[in-house]
Amino acid sequence: MIRPLLALTLAMPLASFASTYPLTLTDVDGQKVTLTHEPQRVVLQDGRDILALALLDRQSPFHRVVAWNNMPKKQDIQSWDLLRKTWPEAEKITDMGFSDQGEINLETVLSKKTDLVIAQWRAKPALKQTGVLAALAKLNIPVLFVDYELEPVKNTKKSIELLGKALNKEKEAQSYATFYQERLDAILSAAKSMDKTPTVFIEPIAGNTENCCFTHSHNGWGGLVEAVGGRNIGSELLPGNAGFVSLEKVISMKPDVYIMSGSRRPNVNVLPFGYGVTPQQVSVVFNKLKNRQGLNQIQPIQDGNVYGVYHHFYNHPYNIIGMEIIAKDLYQGKLNNLDPLNDYHHIIRDFTKLPDENIILSYP
């Protein structure tokens, strides 16, 4: 049985931490990164890492950031609105304007006198191919790779601890890492106790394309399905990290559970999870999506084993909430002590200075 761990987490005494520079760290890519001083001018290759900095530089997660690719503004406008209203200086930070695939403006990095680049591990091939990594190495600008998406169970806690050491915020990093590990252990323990491994098809950003069936492989949402003990169909069928699977193939794989992710976007067909939405708004889109042509041939759609989850839990360190939601979907009625919404509010309220506002994370 999963027991409440929040009070225990808050009550645990924390050691006094302080980073000493020069400091050499090993990042998730296995590379040795030496920091000569505490970084004060940071570039974010993927701007969603601002949510990691919110766990560490709690009073002002933007105060070190000199440039970034503002992914929240592009993909998660509700969270961006919260960020900029709480810290207005965010709007003045240089937005390099690139996607999250591994692009950095070297001129911007140089002009901002950058002393650390934080990058997602999945972006390394692109950064290497374009010569960015080699150029930064010649300029003695360190690059620290973190990861919440390719190997979330292995690397999320490690990434937060790594950033905590790099930014001289070990105490804050350790407090969140302790909470994260407690919740993860509880999920994994519960999953191991189940008699059956459920087969899952997960459709990220459901409604973004007209037809079924886009999905993730071992990474992203597929990785979170596997993390909580599910058998992810995309992992067995896709040659890469993401792609389309035919409806006929999904039907033939006989999934036990069908999960759709979404967030509020200009495309009204996407499930509008997140801040500033009502259950009715989610319900209307959810019912339209599950009644798309052909989906009624998939067994979990027929049986009512179809669920929705807020999309933006797969690519930052709050992914533990995504795991909790999926675990409850996979093991209906078996994990009643899991409360993802309460845990999310706990993260926001006790590990960040973000406003603790109403949010819809899942449906039904």
Rank of each mutant, 00 (worst) to 15 (best):
L6N: 10
L6E: 12
A7V: 08
L14P: 06
S19H: 05
Y21V: 01
L23A: 05
L25I: 05
T26N: 09
D27M: 06
V28G: 11
Q31C: 04
T34P: 10
L35W: 03
P39I: 07
Q40N: 10
R41N: 09
R41S: 12
V43P: 01
L44C: 06
L44A: 06
L51I: 01
D57A: 05
S60D: 15
H63Q: 14
V65T: 04
N69S: 07
N70Q: 14
P72E: 03
Q75P: 00
Q75H: 08
D81R: 15
L82Y: 12
L82H: 13
R84P: 00
R84A: 08
T86A: 11
E89I: 06
I93V: 15
S99N: 14
D100E: 12
G102V: 00
L110F: 11
K112W: 05
W121M: 13
P125G: 08
P125K: 12
K128C: 00
Q129D: 11
Q129T: 06
V132W: 08
L136V: 02
L136M: 08
L139Y: 04
V143I: 04
V143Y: 02
D147W: 02
L150I: 12
P152T: 00
K158T: 11
I160Q: 06
E161D: 13
E161I: 10
L162D: 14
G164R: 10
G164D: 02
A166R: 03
N168I: 05
K171Y: 12
Q181R: 13
Q181T: 14
A191D: 11
A191H: 13
S193M: 11
F201K: 13
G207N: 09
E210P: 07
C213H: 06
C213F: 08
T215Q: 14
S217E: 09
H218E: 13
V225Y: 08
E226S: 11
V228M: 07
V228L: 09
G230W: 03
N232C: 05
S235F: 11
E236Y: 10
L237W: 05
S246A: 11
S246G: 06
V250C: 06
I251M: 09
S252T: 11
S252H: 08
K254D: 15
K254I: 02
P255Y: 12
Y258L: 13
I259L: 13
R264E: 04
P266K: 11
P266Y: 04
V270Y: 02
L271R: 05
F273S: 03
F273T: 00
G274V: 07
G276C: 06
V277Y: 04
P279E: 12
Q281W: 07
K288I: 03
L289S: 10
L289M: 08
R292L: 12
G294E: 04
Q297P: 00
I298Q: 01
Q299D: 09
P300F: 09
I301N: 05
Q302H: 07
G304P: 05
G304Y: 02
G304T: 08
H312Q: 09
H316S: 10
H316I: 02
P317S: 13
Y318N: 12
I320S: 03
L330S: 07
L330W: 10
Y331C: 09
Y331P: 03
K334L: 00
L335C: 02
N337H: 04
L338A: 09
L338F: 06
L338S: 09
L341W: 07
D343L: 09
Y344K: 03
H345T: 04
H346P: 02
R349D: 15
K353A: 14
D356R: 05
L361T: 01
S362N: 11
P364I: 07
